[in-house]
């Protein structure tokens, strides 16, 4: 028996919003520790890694490991039926071929349940090694979203260059070029609004705008985003979801032929 209850359905709605442009289907792996999802986009350029810890749920029970293959379009349809303030409970029997979502309004006057068929997905999982990154950049997630949106008007790629002076995001295309430089916040009064740069080695890497824009769909999950970079390895874009876990996106760089 698997049962996981969240007081706010909005977290699950936002998680789905954050992955549905990249993935059409995905496997939710549930065990004692919580719910995990790892999946690559169709072109195998980006990867989503989601963790929702058991202790972040209002109620969590998982007697046996459960693997639930879900069509994310169908899941989106179902979650649209939940009010933001509704609680949501996901339930599945051991070895079941369906999952049930139960939505309860705050006063419990309205209770609805939606049963969805599960899919047998044979998706490839990648082993991601523990990596010490040369640069990590923390910044307000809304600022990152704004930059990606602004720069993608000019070019298809964004060059991210991190040095001891700060971090620079650049692009160029038919109409011209654009650069945005961010320096580390001088005095940190509010951590959520700070730009914090840790750099061991300077790194410059180039990434596809389109994917960075997909990642920013997670903006509402966290006030801050962290970018981790090392030379010639995928970028990690991490949004920590308060009290419950994180969503990490990995993006393969573009390189000179």
């Amino acid at each position: 028996m698997f049962e996981a209850r969240l007081l706010k359905s909005s977290i699950l709605k936002k998680v789905l919003e954050a992955i549905k442009d990249l993935l059409t289907q995905a496997t939710f792996d549930c065990d004692d520790n919580g719910i995990q999802l790892q999946a690559m986009d169709n072109s195998h350029v980006a990867l989503v890694s989601l963790l929702l810890r058991a202790d972040g749920f209002d109620k969590y029970r998982c007697d046996r490991n459960v693997t639930m293959g879900m069509n994310l379009g169908s899941m989106t349809k179902i979650l649209k039926c939940a009010g933001d303030k509704d609680t949501v409970t996901m339930k599945a029997q051991d070895n079941a071929d369906t999952v049930t979502f139960v939505f309860e309004s705050p006063n419990q006057e309205k209770v609805s349940d939606y049963e969805m068929k599960l899919m047998n997905l044979d998706l490839e999982h990648l082993g991601i090694p523990e990596t010490e990154y040369s640069c990590t950049i923390r910044m307000p997630s809304a600022e990152f979203a704004r930059m990606c949106r602004d720069l993608s008007q000019f070019g298809e790629s964004i060059v991210i260059s991190c040095t001891k002076e700060g971090v620079k995001f650049s692009t160029s295309g038919d109409i011209g070029s654009a650069n945005i430089k961010l320096a580390q916040t001088a005095s940190i009064d509010k951590e959520d609004e700070a730009v914090i740069i840790e750099m061991d080695e300077p790194v410059t890497l180039t990434f596809a705008c389109q994917y960075l824009n997909y990642f920013t769909k997670a903006t509402s999950l966290s006030p801050q985003v962290q970018l981790s970079m090392s030379a010639d390895v995928p970028l990690v874009v991490e949004y920590r979801i308060p009290d419950i876990g994180h969503i990490r996106y990995y993006l393969a760089p573009k390189i000179e032929e």
């Binding site: 350029v45 999982h125 393969a252 390189i255």
Partner: peptide
């Protein structure tokens, strides 16, 4: 010109 790499050139299948 730049080429988009794939994740599999960095991470190994499990």
């Amino acid at each position: 010109s730049l080429t988009q790499t794939k994740l599999k050139s960095f991470f190994t299948p499990k």
